[in-house]
Amino acid sequence: MIYRGEDIIIRTISRMLIPFIQLYGLYVIMHGHYSPGGGFQGGVILGASLILLLLAYGYQDAKSRVPEKLLTVFSGVGVFIYAGTGFLCLVLLGNFLDYAMLAKILHTDAAHARSLGILSVEIGVGMAVMAVMVSIFLDISTGGVLPGEEEEKQKTAEEA
């Protein structure tokens, strides 16, 4: 269980470092074309920053920053952006993820369309990976039952 937070030293250092870690994650996602990294790696870095927040502050205090429902929404929206870019290319008479077809609606040449298409796919993958990483961490560390949800589950079990 991750009810309790850490002590003041770890909390202070985490509070100082987490914004820079998230900024670096966004940098890795955006510069995935010509430096190591990309959607998956940037998503892992963003997820690691949120995991550090949960470790340092405990679930009770970090609940408002990392709500469980928002994580579900994020993972769905990320996969939707990825698959939507692919199917948009299908609609525009290309293959799946054939970014050059996006030039018709973006009003640019094929090279710029490929760059922008890859960027949108990476943003989607990053969002999905971040949300799924934090969800897996929450599931493993709490055994599937989040603190605060136990009473609700007992109530529903008694009613049934």
Partner: peptide
């Protein structure tokens, strides 16, 4: 700078 902040913190966590 990152290592200078993070390394003593992780040492403190393990020792505690």
């Amino acid at each position: 700078v990152f290592m200078f902040l993070a390394q003593p913190t992780s040492t403190h966590a393990i020792s505690r």
